[in-house]
Design a protein around this nucleic acid. Structure first.
Length: 269
DNA sequence: AGCTCATGGCGAG
DNA sequence: TCGCCCTGAGCTG
């Protein structure tokens, strides 16, 4: 269940584990057998993350493109992979380690050209140093949709998901229902640079923490880690509970089929 | 054991 | 906007 930070975290782990090594590639489940056979035995050249998309590059120039969706998961292990348990879409095996992929929305083989085209379709990713925030600003400044909806648009903010969306809006006290084009350039710049900081930190940790030091549980006399997603957050999935800053009940609403959390007192305007 | 829900996104209508 | 994909955790009982 990943936002971009987890995908980048996984890309680094896959790269550390498999880059410059020959890998045996197969699909025990059978749904990626043909693609796996085409790269089986090749050396992994590099692994890239762009937003929530993962690309594993092989010596032939071909790429395996993976999108985890809501359910997808990677598992890693040392030595030889055990007999498959359940449905494993993709399995990588080096002479030292293995990795198993289950439940992805997408697992496909791409040519070098197709991979380049796929990357071009993905919007600027705050975790990537080559991201162009002007692309995001153009879309934000021209959209009449709520800023909370635009933050989830992967062609505008690649890698941002439901947690970062809610949390970054809280941290900048922005009403999630404000029209995107009503967000000023200074506000956008603050949102973008904060996403760079939060998501980069989230990449190293492989989890999402957004609470400033002065609001941390130790500083506030609270118990840490209330939520099972693993990090410290202000509003995500805290509906009905008091805002960590002002005590107002955190609210929840459905926006485009996803749940949106915010503090109606802190996030005004 | 069974039910609900989840950090996502696609395609049909 | 809805259904679906398809996995797993956290509840209920």
């Amino acid at each position: 269940m990943p936002e971009g930070n987890v995908v980048h975290h996984l890309a680094r782990k896959l790269s550390r584990t498999f880059s410059r090594r020959a890998v045996h590639v197969d699909s025990p489940q059978g749904r990626f057998t043909e693609g796996a056979a085409r790269v089986d035995g090749q050396v992994v050249r590099r692994v890239e993350a762009h937003g929530k998309h993962l690309f594993i590059g092989f010596a032939s120039g071909q790429w395996v493109h993976v999108h985890l969706g809501l359910y997808g998961k990677w598992r890693f292990g040392k030595g030889a992979a055990p007999d498959p348990v359940g449905l494993i879409r993709l399995r990588l095996q080096s002479d030292e380690s293995y990795a198993e992929l289950r439940g992805p929305t997408k697992c496909e083989l791409l040519t070098a050209d197709e991979k380049r085209a796929a990357v071009r379709r993905i919007g600027p990713d705050p975790i990537r140093t080559d991201a162009d925030p002007e692309v995001a600003w153009r879309r934000v400044s021209r959209s009449s949709a709520p800023i909370a909806a635009v933050l989830m648009d992967q062609s505008t903010f690649a890698g941002v998901g439901n947690i970062y969306r809610a949390e970054v809006l809280f941290r900048h006290r922005i009403d999630p229902f404000r029209e995107a084009r009503g967000v000023s350039r200074p506000e956008f710049d603050e949102l973008w640079s904060d996403l760079v900081i939060l998501m980069t930190a989230g990449t190293k940790r492989g989890r999402i923490d957004t609470v400033r030091d002065e609001h941390l549980p130790e500083a506030m006399g609270r118990a840490p880690r209330e939520d099972r997603h693993g990090g410290e957050v202000y509003v995500y999935r805290r509906d009905g509970r008091p805002c960590h800053v002002c005590g107002t009940e955190v609210r929840i609403a459905e926006l485009q089929g996803r749940k949106l959390y915010w503090c109606p007192s802190c996030q005004t305007g």
